[in-house]
């Protein structure tokens, strides 16, 4: 009896993540994908119906005949969408790289800190999450605007004669993304550095490495799994980021999140915005698959 119950329990435990994926990812995605195959209409919801249970099987087949890839064709005809995708990926890539440059030394310092203060440092990294994301991004407007805190400070110490124009440029977006996503990069790198055996570094020193070359030949390669995880955790949401480019970026900044928002709200073109979202997902699936492969490989190494 107990054995049956425990077998059932272990089944359930396996089912839960799949059920989660099914209900909160696959089904919504399927709905979005279906909408992307329909046409706009002056109706509520604003697209031609794509699914009609009342019509029975023949009704479904009939509706399926009306499906068209016109919206995808439309995306290829207007260069705006292509540019938005490219620019989103570029901005996300640059931001991810900058985040890595800042996060790695932070994580390294945390991992090398005395054991007793590590929990405190970890706490400090997570601390910004206690304030609303939106408020923190708004705060950056106050810092970056021409008469903002940063310019006031730089002017007062005489480093610059003219206020820097940062707000409403790509630099403001980089700053916003790096700031907002830093913990997602720090934490996986920290965890891979923290569990690393320090005698490996000693062995490298013993075999003739300076501390610098010991880092590049041993420590860094062994933290790559953390680096890859951190980069994907930053890159993937950054590609589709909407709030940061909308608040900090300029009117000429093209990002796919903003394009999507415009199609959906301003143009009320749900089918086209669904197509935009579907393509975005395809762009992101590639790094996710790569990430999973890298993880599987790292697990295979028994680390």
């Amino acid at each position: 009896m107990a054995r049956v119950a425990s077998a059932l329990f272990s089944r359930l435990v396996i089912i839960i993540p799949y059920a989660w994926l099914l209900f909160f990812f696959l089904i919504p995605f399927f709905i979005v994908f279906r909408i992307s195959l329909s046409q706009t209409a002056v109706a509520m919801p604003p697209y031609t119906p794509v699914f009609d249970l009342l019509g029975g099987v023949s009704g479904i087949i009939e509706k399926a005949r009306e499906f068209s890839f016109d919206n995808y064709v439309w995306l290829t005809e207007d260069v705006l969408y292509f540019n938005a995708y490219v620019s989103s990926v570029m901005i996300a890539a640059v931001s991810t790289f900058l985040t890595l440059l800042i996060a790695y030394p932070v994580a390294y310092g945390m991992a090398k800190a005395p054991k007793t203060i590590r929990p405190t440092l970890l706490m400090l990294v997570i601390l910004p999450f206690w304030t609303s994301f939106l408020i923190r991004v708004y705060a950056w407007i106050a810092i970056l605007k021409p008469e903002g805190l940063l310019n006031q400070f730089l002017l007062s110490i005489g480093v610059i004669g003219q206020p820097l124009i940062i707000l409403n440029t790509n630099w403001a977006i980089y700053i916003g993304i790096v700031y907002s996503y830093l913990p997602f990069m720090v934490l996986p790198i920290y965890s891979s550095l923290e569990k690393m055996d320090h005698t490996l570094t000693e062995a490298a020193l013993d075999l003739g490495c300076t501390p610098f070359s010991a880092f590049w030949r041993v420590t860094f390669p062994l933290s790559l799994a953390g680096v890859v995880a951190g980069c994907l955790l930053v890159f993937i949401p950054a590609v589709g980021e909407f709030v940061i480019p909308d608040l900090l970026g300029g009117s000429e900044t093209l990002m796919i999140g903003k394009t999507l928002w415009n199609e959906f709200n301003a143009n009320r073109d749900w089918p086209v915005s669904s197509a935009v979202a579907t393509i975005l997902l395809l762009i992101l699936v590639l790094p996710i698959v790569y990430f999973q492969n890298a993880q599987a490989k790292a697990d295979g190494e028994g680390r």
Partner: peptide, 14 residues
Amino acid sequence: PVNMMFQSYALFPH
């Protein structure tokens, strides 16, 4: 000019 064989071996796993 001294090398050490570590108690835990400390082989580089990668």
